[in-house]
Design a protein around this nucleic acid. Sequence first.
DNA 1: CATGAATGAGGATTCATTCAT
DNA 2: CATGAATGAATCCTCATTCAT
Lengths: 218, 218, 218, 218
Amino acid sequence: MVETQAATSVQGHDEDCAKRRQIIKGARTVFLEQGFDGASMGEIARAAGVSKGTLYVYFTDKNSLFCEIIEQESIAQGMLSFDFMPERDIETTLKVFGTAYIKLLCNPRGASAIRTVMAIAERMPDIGRRYYERVIANSLGRFARYLDQQVKSGTLVIDNCDLAAAQFTKLCQATLFLPFIFQMTETPSSERIAEVVDSATRMFLAAYRAKPDDARPS
Amino acid sequence: MVETQAATSVQGHDEDCAKRRQIIKGARTVFLEQGFDGASMGEIARAAGVSKGTLYVYFTDKNSLFCEIIEQESIAQGMLSFDFMPERDIETTLKVFGTAYIKLLCNPRGASAIRTVMAIAERMPDIGRRYYERVIANSLGRFARYLDQQVKSGTLVIDNCDLAAAQFTKLCQATLFLPFIFQMTETPSSERIAEVVDSATRMFLAAYRAKPDDARPS
Amino acid sequence: MVETQAATSVQGHDEDCAKRRQIIKGARTVFLEQGFDGASMGEIARAAGVSKGTLYVYFTDKNSLFCEIIEQESIAQGMLSFDFMPERDIETTLKVFGTAYIKLLCNPRGASAIRTVMAIAERMPDIGRRYYERVIANSLGRFARYLDQQVKSGTLVIDNCDLAAAQFTKLCQATLFLPFIFQMTETPSSERIAEVVDSATRMFLAAYRAKPDDARPS
Amino acid sequence: MVETQAATSVQGHDEDCAKRRQIIKGARTVFLEQGFDGASMGEIARAAGVSKGTLYVYFTDKNSLFCEIIEQESIAQGMLSFDFMPERDIETTLKVFGTAYIKLLCNPRGASAIRTVMAIAERMPDIGRRYYERVIANSLGRFARYLDQQVKSGTLVIDNCDLAAAQFTKLCQATLFLPFIFQMTETPSSERIAEVVDSATRMFLAAYRAKPDDARPS
DNA sequence: CATGAATGAGGATTCATTCAT
DNA sequence: CATGAATGAATCCTCATTCAT
């Protein structure tokens, strides 16, 4: 109510007023738990602690509320990104990245988002694409560029860095992701993650690390 | 309602009479195309060419019909399995298996099933688990046993064959599976599949093929 | 349940089975009493003695139920038509027709239909047009053709029979129709109707009856 | 909220302060365009350029706002009335009046008002009655009094001037009003109006003009 | 007074399920 | 057994109305 805030508080219910955030929070819970069809606007309203009518003050319909949730979720996950510090040795970098990546994928929230988006991707392809681009392609792209640098600096020998990036992330998922997403296990322990990521790193480096002979072909 | 029918009508409707199969066929189409919530019993009845009432003669409710579909689908996919001919050289075996595996995963039917089950796994965890066991763990298990044999026969050196099996299948998915399931691309071409599977095979063998030195440590 | 009926009973819920008629009856009451927007599907269901769901078995939506009501109503009113017996003397014919016409217009049911259709004509022009053609233009047209005959037979001298027909029906409405439709009065008594129709007839004949001189211009 | 405004804000909101007029203007547009049920308070607020809350400062509810609109509209139309200059010859007077009357009835605004009121008359009979009295009975009454004068001055011979007044206005509507209100045609052209009004005038005078013989029966 | 955010009752519509035939 | 008409609960969404500021 003071002048310093006046400029931003005028904006009405379009940006990020408290109610809107409150709704989004409730909707995220319900949508990610129940999926698009499983979630009802009534339940969302209850979860958010507002009336059903209020939902429609902030979002034109169920669809657009859902899109907003996925959008935010994908931005949030896309931002959680991984610093590839070029000066650090490759092995450590791979392990740190792989571990962080798996922890993102194999926790209840990340898995819910993936499941929910995957489920709806056939009927709402745009949602699927946006999510893929924001969350998956984005990390993968940054990782691929890191690999590029390493190739240029002679540490690695890789033909197709995009493929290599995908390969590494896939290797890290090995026995962890699918069992988790199909509800076979709880979130994997740090030990199991470390084990799988170590193996992935070894395999990756075995395939792509520059050999001494490569460097000195003369 | 007359006696002439009594004999046949006694047998019950529990096994696999034609009507039941007909219903399952229609339901599979609709469930896999639309997902659990998207499918309506009316549409299923229409697709199966029976009345809505008949659905309830064979299945107690929508839920149990869905379970049956997924059960059958998972059995069907689990049966489509891969012959690991021990006499064939490893490289070829890996490539043949990898290619078949990806073709199974990245075609509309396989993807629909995975999507559908993944989507529901949070609300119906049993379904998720059964599917995983039947379809994924099953193939993976057989592949792991094949690797075991190869380890025993000295062709490969693998510490954890379950992990290795998962690694190979994951490597084969590298750049193919997710873009497909998130609707970024159509079913990948044979060429692209071959490329990715070849790279996976190379990487796998680089890591796990027995080196000449390994064999003669004595 | 006997064979003689088999052929017609097959038709399902498309033609005029009892339920459908029952729904239409209830819907007519409610729609004509409350107008399109004022009527709720719940109230219609209650008035028809069926469940809300049943309404949608027979009609795709509120709109099409409404159209059906108006269609039927307009057909019913259009069929109530007026015999113009050429052999009867004109004066009697006009009085009989005028009286019947006003009784149609100025009774609760006819008025409700006109009101309801008029109200919706701006948003659903097709409904307005169909109703006008079926109910109004139809009677008017037949009356105009009767006048034509009388002109040809020398009894009347009329330049524009369509205009004349409209004029007569309007004259008959004089002080009756609007007060009734705006709820100023109950259905007018036969005496009042006779009075107005007599006056209309006199005026019409004063303007259009062939004078003796017209017939013998020689 | 400061004292400077106190003085003016005391006067209450009952009469015709600017805000109130502003609301009425917006509401008229929306109500006449969409009908009572079709109009939403939100749209009215938008059309009036005030907040929804303000509507309820000036009017207790939607109903009473609607009544006010119809009231004002009926007054406005009732005032648009027709000067019956006694010195002008009857034929001209009738033609001028008939033409003005039809132009009032058969233009979008007049038609909207009639349609709107007619539509609601069954559910809100008072509204119907007030409108009839103000708009229809009023013009008709003044016209009837004019006819009275003409009867007294010997120009016309009319038994029931109220009936005659209604007859003339009805004759003028002949082929024009109903087709227009049922959306069969656009606003009729001046030529068509002139044609119908001329015919009405001729017919009216043929029936009611004093004949030379009438005047000198003695 | 003026606002507009918030409400919740009510409306149209869908759909899993039942039941008389 | 097979049917399909009938149901009514549940869903999304709208809108008149209220109230704190």
